[in-house]
Amino acid sequence: MIILNIKDALDTISPDPNLILRTELLLMAKANKRKVKFYKSLAVAASLLFIISIMSVGGYAYYQHPVNYIDVDINPSLELEVNAFNRVIDVTYFNSDAEKLIESDDLTGCKTETAVALILQAASDSGYIIKDETSVVSLAAYGRNAEKTQDLLSRCTNTIQNQYCELAVYTATVSDELKSEAKATSISAGKLGLIKMIQTLDSTATTEYYRNKSVASIVNQLTCLCSEVNTGVSEETKANIQNRISGVNAQIECIEQNRRSQEMQGAGSPNQFNSSAEYGDTYSSSSVPGNQTDSGQFGGNADDPSNYCQPPATDSNNSTAYSGGSNQEIQSSANGKTNTAMSPN
């Protein structure tokens, strides 16, 4: 009897060797195609990664690249580095008052106007801006694009004037030479510009002496020097400098006049007070009567306060530009035109 079993029966089923060979070739071809596809995908992914990396690095570098510098001086003196997106990317402190005033982390990443507002808030909290006293803040801007720099300066000025009506704002744009010199002497370009004006009027004045002086005292000193006679400085030079500080002097005078009015009336008019705060060092000397006088601490005519409270016709395009220490180099840029200040005589 033949014994049958399943295993023997199923053993008779086996694939044709040709089928195995054909299948092997087919699979090899598929695998190669897949390999090529894999490397293509890898190349595309690598390219994309490379492009994204380049864009990321480039974007980061662009973000971290400063295009404008804003020097803020009260007595605390610091500089904000601003990128093309109007964001603060770094803060440089020029004195210990500034270091104590605000942490750089609080300013980094903020919009420039916000950073300036934060600085002034901190200055107010720290007693550098006192309500019943007239304080002066200097804003000096430096940048390759003059139009954008001026625009940034105007926005910062407006931010200050909208919040601090008792604060006089001195604004200036900074030349390349002054910026380089300020960097070399570790002083803010805004303050150095003011010191250079003092040195023009007083050859014995040193940068070191005025380095830690407040902007208000420097402006006060400039006003006094301009009013002095027989100093050996030409009247034209004096007029030129007086022209530069006339705007801030007008603001100071207006603020003080308003304060006196409030004191006399018991309660002052806030509207009048606020309107005075819209002044900056941006007015032509002819619009400010105080420019014509030699008397008074800030050169103003206190008898006619209404003259000081006229809002400016154009203020954003008019600022002081420093280009060095000599008299000839201090120029006034008003309404886009360069004017040389005339002597009162």
Binding site: I2, D8, A9, L10, D11, T12
Partner: peptide, 10 residues
């Protein structure tokens, strides 16, 4: 064949 018969039935 015998194996084929088994296979057929399987």
């Amino acid at each position: 064949s015998d194996e084929k018969a088994v296979l057929r039935e399987v």
